[in-house]
């Protein structure tokens, strides 16, 4: 805790990584500031060093890279969800990101990297990226590492935001005939999500052929329900299947959040509701694609 913190504005990723490596503690990486500043303003967080990464060219831009969609960590939400490449290849991400709260002001400033690094259970981007089995590129010291987001999130020593820098996200394009949906339940226009579900699936001959579904905002950690929902493969969508999905997904939540958004019992049940609704919409989309 320092009353007079220091500031650094590195020009390259290498410089930035060196700055982070040279500091023992109290360092924060800052880009859009949307996640960090509320804590700074209230004195909850009193960093000793701010490392401003806005000048790092490697963290900018959206492009295709070796068959993957690469989204730089500094890309703000509005640029991501209005990008034609993202719209074509990752429509699930667009659907979810448009539902991010805070209004235009936040969409204009909040970055992909900030959203991921926050690792906030109520946020909307990570459930989608996990559903799409995204990879991330991370620099720590001299090392550049590409890893799955899932693996990174499971590592309590990932050091993102203080020791390591997220460079970009890499996502394989969704199948052109994929069904997808992002279902977000919130109590009111200004509330954070109480339960959300991201789903991407394919349908062949009217039955579900593949499926990925991740549930967020109901527990401290996001819940990947894909394996548990394996019973859906080979099934066509029906009320009976919907209620099985609902029951299954609610059952996956053993330690639900209980906060201002709602109590644990409700949260658990809502995990099932959003999962089932997301899947219903996704199947309908896929079936419509198939019918074309």
């Amino acid at each position: 805790m320092s009353l007079y913190p220091l500031f650094a504005r590195p020009r390259t990723v290498q410089q930035a990584a060196q700055v982070l490596e040279s500091m023992s503690s109290g360092v924060v990486v800052i880009a859009g500031g949307q996640e960090l500043m509320p804590h700074v303003n209230h004195g909850v967080l009193q960093p000793e060093v701010y490392v401003d990464i806005n000048a790092l060219a490697d963290l900018k831009g959206i492009r295709e890279d070796d068959g993957l969609v690469s989204i730089g960590a500094l890309t703000v939400h509005r640029d991501t969800f209005s990008d034609p490449l993202v719209a074509e290849k990752l429509p699930l991400l667009v659907e979810a990101m448009k539902l991010i709260g805070g209004g235009r002001q936040v969409h204009n400033r909040a970055t992909m990297g900030g959203n991921i690094v926050a690792m906030h259970p109520l946020y909307d981007v990570v459930p989608v990226l996990l559903t799409l089995e995204a990879q991330v590129e991370v620099v720590r010291g001299a090392e550049t590492r590409r890893t799955s987001l899932k693996e990174l999130m499971a590592d309590p020593r990932h050091g993102l935001g203080s020791e390591a820098i997220l460079i970009r996200v890499l996502v394989a394009p969704m199948a052109a005939d994929a069904g997808f949906a992002y279902e977000k339940l919130k109590s009111s226009g200004g509330a954070y999500g109480s339960a959300n579900a991201a789903v991407a699936l394919t349908v062949a001959d009217g039955v579900i052929a593949s499926l990925r579904l991740v549930i967020g905002a109901v527990a401290d950690r996001l819940v990947d329900a894909s394996e548990a929902l394996a019973f859906c493969i080979g099934q066509s969508w029906s009320d009976a299947l919907a209620s099985k999905v609902e029951h299954c997904c609610a059952g996956l939540i053993d330690q639900p959040l209980s906060d201002h958004q709602g109590d644990g019992e409700w949260r658990k049940a809502m995990a099932g509701v959003v999962a089932q609704r997301a899947m219903g919409r996704a199947v309908a989309r896929a079936v419509a694609q198939e019918g074309r």
Partner: peptide
């Protein structure tokens, strides 16, 4: 905390909540 929006300004042609923008950036 970036919730109310009373601090909104335009930064490089796009609106932002100035209370959660770090000036030094």
């Amino acid at each position: 905390t970036g919730h109310c929006g009373a601090c909104t300004v335009m930064v490089n042609g796009r609106i932002a909540k100035s209370c959660i923008v770090l000036a030094s950036t």
